[in-house]
Design a binder for these strands. Structure first.
Length: 223
DNA sequence: TAGGCCATCTGGTCCT
DNA sequence: AGGACCAGATGGCCTA
């Protein structure tokens, strides 16, 4: 599970059951190239011949998206469509109008899904995981679950920071224990005191948390 | 070959 | 009426 190295935190990897490390590993290992699939026609990516073949062999009604100016690939589709029928919708319209309307609706839906995928790509780009070309990108579900956990951990880190600042400023006693680490993602540690020891370390650090603070470089440098 | 993931089509529903 | 959103269905690709 080398692909998980970049994450470096079990808490961060605590995805929902079924989408945990094993499921995540699947998504991460498949290779970032993404292959022909996941490439949208008209988006500068090659469209796999299989889909085009399917398009040709199906009803022939789904060849595309004139409005978008590209030949839409066709995978799947309902039985009705494959039978060359247009069920429901656009009732009372001529078949040609029905088909035109259907193609328009399909194109809109395709654009909507592309926008959704773009947003997911944006989310992937800000999630700390292996963005290596040799590592397959996260699946959609893994992206969402990872993002959720990342947000939770960031909130946890922020809370510890606030507690420490409050303690140092006011000397108030804090009872709640702090997270063991603020470096869950294998990134370079960021210390709030510019890489220096917390003033008064180690007395204050141990008094604050009962153990060395993850926020104090001096504490973390100790073997 | 089975299972996972994905793109696409489609009809229904809700909103403007 | 038209568009956005959603969920189901379908089939292709890839990996174990």
């Amino acid at each position: 599970m080398a692909e998980l190295k970049s994450l470096g935190s079990e808490a961060y990897l605590a995805l929902a059951p079924g989408y945990g490390p094993s499921a995540f590993a699947y998504g991460a290992v498949r290779g970032a190239a993404e292959g022909p699939r996941g490439a949208y026609p008209g988006r500068g990516a090659d469209f796999h011949a299989g889909a085009l073949g399917k398009s040709a062999e199906s009803s022939g009604e789904q060849s595309g998206d004139e409005e978008d100016g590209f030949e839409a690939g066709v995978k799947g589709g309902s039985g009705f469509e494959r039978e060359g029928k247009l069920k429901g919708g656009a009732l009372g319209k001529k078949p040609k109008e029905q088909r035109s309307l259907r193609l328009s609706i399909n194109a809109r839906e395709r654009r909507r899904m592309h926008d959704l995928n773009d947003a997911l790509d944006g989310l992937r780009s800000v999630i700390p995981y292996a963005h290596s070309p040799s590592v397959r990108k996260l699946s959609k579900i893994a992206t969402l679950l990872l993002a959720k956990n990342y947000i939770l951990m960031q909130a946890q880190a922020l809370e510890e920071m606030r507690r420490l600042v409050a303690y140092l400023n006011q000397g108030q006693a804090l009872s709640a224990p702090l997270p063991a680490t603020l470096n869950p993602f294998g990134q370079s540690p960021v210390y709030p005191f510019g890489g220096a020891a917390v003033p008064g370390c180690p007395e204050k650090c141990t008094a604050f948390t009962g153990a060395a603070s993850a926020l104090c470089k001096h504490c973390n440098d100790k073997p």
